[in-house]
Structures are given as C-alpha cells and as structure tokens.
Amino acid sequence: MEPNNFIPTSNIANKVRNTRLPRTKPLMPLFELISNSIHSIEEAKKNAGLKSEDGQVIIECLRNGAPEVLANMSDIDIYPIHSFIVQDNGIGLNEENLKAYIEADTDHKIE
C-alpha cells in the first residue's frame, strides 16, 4: 500500500465499548448531549435567525416497562431509566458539524 493512499480510520462502536465511565459520573453522556444542544441553539441564533427566547431543549427519559403501564402508575421511579432522547431546535447536523461528529477525538468547538 502506498503511503499517499493510507487513510486512518476509527472503530467508534469499539471505542465507546472500551471507554470506561466512572460510576460517579453516569450522566456525563447526557450532559454532553445537552451541551451539544446548547451549541446548536447558539449557532442557530447567529446564523439562522433563531430568537434568543425561542431556543428549546427537550429531554425525554425512557424507562423499562410498557408506556401504557407507566402512564397509570403513581410511582414510576421503580422502573429504571434506560436511555434518553434529547431534541433541540438548533442549527442541526450541518456539513461542518457532521465532519466533526465522524472524526474520532475531534477538537471542533474546543473553545
């Protein structure tokens, strides 16, 4: 293989599996998602005309158990949260952000 044709790659799924999250910081991925949403909203304010008061982040907690059962329970905390859905009305995954997203250990938006 010629050196000019060599393109480094990264197995992101395996990198995630190999990354250890300390037991004391289980919500760090959620904080990262919220941070990304805030950046996306700030970008939309600068570039897409979003008004400051219109920025929105919605966090949905998904729990074990059927939604119809959970809806009728007074104490759903016995059913653990297994994941989150985070939505925002920011700039979205534009080309620049997509390039950074697929780059392992990117320094995009490091500031």
Rank of each mutant, 00 (worst) to 15 (best):
I12E: 03
I38C: 11
K45I: 14
L70R: 04
P26A: 09
D88R: 06
N72K: 15
I41A: 05
D88V: 04
I59Q: 07
D77I: 01
L70S: 01
M1P: 02
A100Q: 09
F84Y: 15
F31N: 12
Q87S: 12
S52F: 05
L21V: 14
S40R: 09
E103T: 07
K15W: 03
E111V: 05
K51T: 03
N11M: 01
A44R: 02
I85L: 09
V16F: 10
A44V: 10
I59W: 05
N89F: 02
M73E: 15
K46P: 00
M28S: 14
A71Q: 09
E53S: 11
A104W: 00
I38N: 11
A66W: 09
M73Y: 09
I91E: 05
N5W: 02
P67I: 03
F84E: 10
E32N: 12
R63Q: 02
E111I: 03
L70K: 02
L33N: 13
Q56N: 15
L98Q: 08
S74M: 07
A44F: 02
K109E: 15
S83D: 05
L62A: 06
R23V: 13
I38E: 14
T24E: 15
P3D: 01
E95W: 04
V69E: 15
I102Y: 05
P3I: 02
I34E: 14
A44K: 02
